[in-house]
Design a protein around this nucleic acid. Sequence first.
DNA 1: GGCGATTGCTTGCGGGTGCAACAAACCATA
DNA 2: TATGGTTTGTTGCACCCGCAAGCAATCGCC
Lengths: 153, 153
Amino acid sequence: MATDWLSEPEQHSWRNFIMTVHDLMAALEIDLAPHGLTMGDYEVLVWLSEAEANRMRMCDLAGALQLSPSGLTRRLDGMVKNGWVERASCESDRRVMWAHLTPAGLTKMKTVAPDHVASVRRHVLDPLGPDGVVQLGEIFGRIGHHLHDAQPA
Amino acid sequence: MATDWLSEPEQHSWRNFIMTVHDLMAALEIDLAPHGLTMGDYEVLVWLSEAEANRMRMCDLAGALQLSPSGLTRRLDGMVKNGWVERASCESDRRVMWAHLTPAGLTKMKTVAPDHVASVRRHVLDPLGPDGVVQLGEIFGRIGHHLHDAQPA
DNA sequence: GGCGATTGCTTGCGGGTGCAACAAACCATA
DNA sequence: TATGGTTTGTTGCACCCGCAAGCAATCGCC
């Protein structure tokens, strides 16, 4: 075999991680689909609903969503079309576009969030239990810190 | 705040997980890019190199890679173009296409794998340590089992 | 043997994303 | 004030992917 440079337990953990993340994300998307939005759309609603005045600058939102500028432009296009978000020019810096959550968007958020939270709970948090959730946080905290230390972005 | 239906620790763990997975996959892709292939390509090499006679039926490979049939067709197109994989008709069932690893593909695999393994080790395994790797395996084992029990695919 | 159902793969189409190029606005410095 | 560099957002292009349709081959059942 050509890939035995990982020990058997390491390989098992790693491959299982890769494949399960794929399945998990797919399951979350499926649960969200009946509401007419994707995980990506939902993340936009989350960030804007928590933001000051329910609005963020495009570039800040792109950073929060780990999305390229062009990616965010297109994603917002869809959400504007659905009436959940409005674009608004910024008075003090006319380069800036505000992504502003509409009342309809906030309503959508409040409608969808309980279902999505339940979905996360069902697929992830419940199977893990309290201790498992803590371990999950520690594990990805460590990986994340390591990533950002090495590549300070 | 509109998303406090998760406790603070739960929310922290979950969001950190989502964002770190994104960053981690990006880091692995970046490390692989100098070799001229993506994680998706690499997975093809792994599966074929471990398969009987270095070949798999398209449908089996698609399942292994968690890819739709059309997705696999296009991914293989690229790998055939690079000379790493050949398509071969099956004698006993002429519907079937074999995806067959070429000698060049096997060489590529052996060249790239050490770098990729080192990348995984550096970004994931080393920061976690042996105990962390075990926890990673347990956590996603539990999530995976739960997913497949609920939706037997 | 023959015919409908199933399986395996490919193709057309649409959606989502990143990169590079671009335009507009801002800033810093002379 | 004027100019070069920086920041912000959008657009063109290419890539990757899934779904649905289509085609060929096989299987199952009469």
